[in-house]
């Protein structure tokens, strides 16, 4: 694909272009009729002629006859669109449940560490009380240290449980003002334990004035979580750099997730947003992440752009309509602002 990456913008729902085609079809006979009438008018109706009359009549008939067909097609189309929307709606719900499962398993994992430490500290206090520590003053000091450590680990556990509470609390409020900088940071925070496990450096290039999109926090977080998880998967064991960037231009806000992973093979690009299409190994991906993401973004009036150079990584950019500056509601999720750390 040469040095430059390939850019592909994706239309999220196919029904819309079909609808336009049907309408154009309907407009065609009307246009021909109009042209014919114009021609007649221009020739001043000198030779109205039987042929012209006949043609006019025929065209009228075709137009009339096609009206029920066109109406029927339009009706079928909106039914299809409704079914499509319902299908994606259900998929989004399922994907959310699935990612909740993933998030909770990662949190359960994280909780295990402080639990294991508290277990040892409490056990050590018990050992000391049963006389393991030698002289009494040293034992008292040891006990104090262990109890302090238990308190530290309790605070740590509380922070971990806060993460799942934040996740569950964000509601589906459809047209909230979403601060993209804040949302990206919070989403990154959810992935903190994954980031620590793999050798990934996080680079943030967030706009100094937070870009604000109109949308639902819960839905957009789903999108960013999908994109970030894909980015991490693409980099795999070898690690790399995860770049998170935001920017605004008049009327539009952009958030992009870039990785330095394997990139997208050119033959996969056209199918990237199809449901059940995945390049991940069996059992690793459902092929729903990008399909759902593009549906959510499309529903909000935006699009997802992909840029990838195979072997060098990929950048997914979510482009959304900017929220016109009204009263700005905070991106919900409580007072806990996550500060993800770069691991590596």
């Amino acid at each position: 694909m040469g040095g430059r990456g390939e850019i592909k913008a994706i239309a999220p729902v196919g029904g819309r272009s079909l609808r336009t085609a049907v309408l154009a079809l309907a407009a065609l006979p009307a246009l021909v009729l109009l042209a014919f009438a114009l021609l007649l008018a221009l020739t001043g109706g000198r030779r109205p002629g039987a042929l012209a009359g006949l043609l006019l009549l025929a065209l009228c008939a075709v137009l009339l006859a096609s009206i029920p067909l066109i109406l029927h097609l339009l009706h079928r189309l909106s039914a299809m669109e409704r079914q499509g929307a319902a299908f994606y709606h259900e998929l989004t719900r399922l994907a959310k449940v699935a990612s909740l499962g993933e998030v909770s398993s990662s949190i359960a994992h994280d909780l295990n560490n402080p639990l294991a430490i508290m277990n040892e500290e409490a056990g050590w206090v018990m050992d000391l009380l049963q006389g393991a520590g030698g002289d009494e003053r040293a034992a008292r000091e040891e006990i104090r240290h262990s109890v302090e450590q238990i308190q530290i680990q309790i605070r740590r556990s509380r922070e971990i449980t806060q993460r799942i509470l934040n996740w569950a609390r964000d509601t589906d409020e459809p047209a909230a003002a979403v601060d993209l900088n804040l949302l990206l940071n919070k989403t990154l925070y959810l992935l903190e334990s994954d980031l620590q496990r793999v050798q990934v450096r996080v680079v943030k290039r967030l706009a100094s004035v937070p870009p604000v999109a109109a949308g639902s926090v819960a839905e957009l977080r789903q999108v960013f979580l999908n994109l970030m998880k894909n980015a991490l998967d693409a980099m795999g064991e070898t690690g790399g750099t995860l770049t998170i960037a935001t920017s605004s231009s008049p009327g539009e806000v952009r958030a992009s997730i870039g990785d330095t992973g394997s990139g997208i093979p050119p033959e996969a690009l056209p199918r990237l947003f199809e449901p059940f299409f995945t390049t991940k190994e069996e059992g690793k991906g459902t092929g729903l992440g990008l399909a759902i993401s593009s549906w959510i973004v499309g529903k909000l009036g935006g699009r997802i752009e992909v840029e990838s150079t195979p072997g060098q990584g990929a950048v997914f950019t979510v482009v959304l309509p900017a929220r016109t500056s009204e009263a700005m509601e905070p991106c919900n999720g409580g007072s806990h602002a996550g500060h993800p750390t770069a691991a590596g």
Partner: peptide
């Protein structure tokens, strides 16, 4: 990788 875990479990096993 949890330093405090190593330290305390270490002490208990040493004991």
């Amino acid at each position: 990788d949890e330093e405090r875990f190593v330290e305390t479990l270490g002490k208990r096993l040493t004991a």
